[in-house]
Nucleic acid binder design. Structure first.
Lengths: 195, 195
DNA sequence: CTTGCAACCGGAACTAGTTCCGCTTACCGT
DNA sequence: ACGGTAAGCGGAACTAGTTCCGGTTGCAAG
């Protein structure tokens, strides 16, 4: 049933015992279903039960609820990051950057609890640096294109922009604050590019 | 020292029963001590016990831990807001704004849990709008001074700047991310003023 | 002083996330 | 096949915030 699988290593899967891998997949599936159905409010215990495992098993694989959320949406984050080069290639630099930022915010705003998960990912210095690096690279790519046009400005590290976007997500995630997010992104953009 | 007090209503104190007022004071005192001693990690139950009341009493007055934190530091927030006019009067507009922003971040960063409390204050639409309005006014004041110099820019509502600062606090509050905060404030400043 | 009652009190109970640990089992070497 | 063992498992127990409600009390009217 689960679409993607089928051939080879669907994900990282660093040599886990067969049952462990199976459980991990079940957990991700159950978590995805639960989050889709009832948002980030879905309880960890319910997810474990739905996956047919104990909470201990869930926590061994995903040390916190935020990390579980992050794992569930990881491939969507990847898709978002992958879109950066295309944007950079087909749009004027600044427009590409703006568009990507807006997509980023939309994603963080729409996926319940994703903003909080992002906070953990960006804040903790655990190995989860992978996702962080992915995002930073996408931004760096877009930033480089902008930089070419208006030199002299060494400002605005990709990490910083990522952090700023994270902060905006956190403030705008609650409720329909789409407009607030839009204005803040606009502000950030002004700070990043000379305009 | 505490400037404003002295006469009449020390705080809001909307006609509470004598015992209720006494308990509120005790709670604030106990909470302040606990937060100073062990940071925002201090447990609500311990604070209630130290104040000699039950948790129910604490929660009737302060509906959440964040709101309790906010109440404890409220007068310091007020002091911060009160400093804005003086800064605006003695410094070039942009410098005044930058200085105030840095002070704001320092405050939110230093006081444990204050960033999270701020998130609640800025996010919820409860009556806590008072503190929010206080902050927004201070920013509006500083912003107005900047606006005079470079007209034509309707951008940057005080509310938005406040939200942006809140987001920065949230991302930089964990650990010694003082430098990150500084860079983001710099970025925000660029977005707000034309420079 | 007595009485009525709304406001208030305390803490047991509930919820949800996280940790701990004794038992089980997949996997590899023999 | 077989046995040893490290990896994995489940869920009871723990923690901390928050809610609920039966009992208490400040206060003012009579």
């Amino acid at each position: 049933m689960s679409s993607s699988d089928g051939a080879g290593t669907t994900r990282g899967h660093r040599s886990l015992r067969a049952d462990a891998r199976r459980n991990e997949d079940r957990l991700l599936e159950a978590a995805a279903a639960a989050f889709a159905r009832e948002g980030a409010g879905a309880s960890v215990k319910d997810i474990a039960r739905a996956a047919g495992v104990g909470v201990g098993t869930l926590y061994r694989r995903f040390p916190s609820k935020e990390l579980l959320i992050e794992a569930v949406y990881r491939h969507e984050v990847r898709r978002l990051c992958d879109s950066a080069p295309h944007l950079a290639a087909t749009l004027p630099p600044v427009d590409a950057l703006r568009t990507w930022m807006e997509d980023f915010i939309d994603f963080m705003t729409v996926k319940g609890g994703m903003a909080d998960a992002l906070r953990v990912v960006l804040t903790d210095d655990n190995e989860k640096t992978h996702t962080r690096a992915l995002l930073a690279d996408a931004i760096a790519h877009l930033l480089a294109a902008v930089g070419e046009r208006s030199p002299g400005r060494p400002r605005a590290d990709a990490q910083d922009v990522l952090m700023a976007l994270g902060g905006i997500s956190l403030m705008a995630s609650s409720e329909g604050r789409r407009d607030l997010a839009a204005r803040l992104v606009h502000l950030l953009l002004h700070g990043v590019v000379g305009t």
